[in-house]
């Protein structure tokens, strides 16, 4: 069984990772590169606002220095990846593809373990079921964590990294367990526990800062967050179905 688990997951994860990288280059990468220019100060939000005399009421007063202009990207304990030894774009984007494939291979291994676990109780994951399992994986690993920790552009100050990562992991585990209980729980108690697990991370709340000091324009950040979640949704649903196809086989599709 283990060979089939590994091979199914690696195939599906590889395909999903390639799709993720493709969508990321199509939708997200430009935003990341642009945000890094704000992060390093090469671009400043509001600095390019039209000169006075413009009759737009909403135009910010150019005489007032934008708060963003004063905010230094300090506090960052590292350089943006672009700055690391002037890495070539080829290397940078190659690494992005590599790590997208790795990440989704990891997710696929977790998902195939879940398929196999369900199989222990005689539940076969058809291709259509796979779409739903992929959706659940998206909810657990992207949507629920994003409710507290939105996908961020470079240059966005945020709370302590360890605290955020712990909340992220706890949320992913609680959401996956909660959805599992909701889907497969046989008693009212089990379903209630599932709902409780889904809600718990958000009752606790994600670690956050007191104020807002991001240097990137809000339009850019919200576009990035929306697109990141959209990409995640596509890739997870695709992966769930492909994995079901490899794991369960064609006959049951």
């Amino acid at each position: 069984m283990i060979q089939r688990m590994l091979s199914s997951a690696l195939f599906a994860g590889f395909a999903a990772g390639l799709l993720a990288a493709l969508l990321q280059f199509a939708f997200d990468e430009k935003l990341i590169l642009l945000a890094e220019q704000y992060e390093t100060g090469a671009l400043v939000h509001f600095a390019a606002a039209e000169p006075a005399g413009h009759d737009h009421a909403a135009t910010p007063d150019p005489a007032t220095p934008a708060p963003e202009a004063a905010a230094q990207p300090a506090g960052h304990d590292h350089q943006p990846a672009a700055g690391e030894g002037g890495a070539s774009p080829l290397k940078r984007h190659g690494l992005t593809v590599l790590f997208a494939v790795l990440t989704y291979a990891g997710y696929a291994l977790i998902l195939v373990a879940a398929y196999a676990l369900a199989g222990q109780w005689g539940y076969r994951v058809s291709l259509r079921d796979g779409l739903l399992w992929g959706l659940a994986g998206f909810a657990a690993f992207q949507m629920a964590p994003a409710m507290g920790l939105e996908p961020e552009l470079p240059g966005t100050p945020a709370a302590d990294l360890d605290a955020r990562q712990i909340w992220w992991m706890g949320t992913a585990i609680a959401t996956a367990a909660g959805l599992g209980l909701l889907a497969f729980g046989r008693s009212l108690l089990a379903r209630a526990a599932g709902v409780l697990l889904l809600a718990l991370p958000h009752v606790i709340g994600a670690p956050e800062l007191d104020g807002f000091a991001g240097v990137t324009p809000p339009e850019l950040a919200s576009r990035f967050a929306a697109r990141s979640l959209g990409i995640g949704l596509c890739v997870w649903v695709f992966m769930g179905a492909v994995l079901a196809r490899f794991w369960t086989g064609k006959a049951e599709a």
Binding site: A20, A21, Q24, D28, E29, I32, H76, H78, P80, A81, E84, R92, H93, L95, T96, L98, F99, A100, T103, Q142, P145, A146, L149, E150, P151, E152, L153, P154, T156, A158, L161, R164, Q165, W168, F224, S228, L229, I231, G232
Partner: peptide
């Protein structure tokens, strides 16, 4: 690892930085 995975981490919504 962080530098290599940087863009993917951001796009996939992992807490980064």
């Amino acid at each position: 690892l962080h530098d290599a995975a940087h863009d993917m981490r951001h796009s996939t919504g992992f807490p980064c930085h």
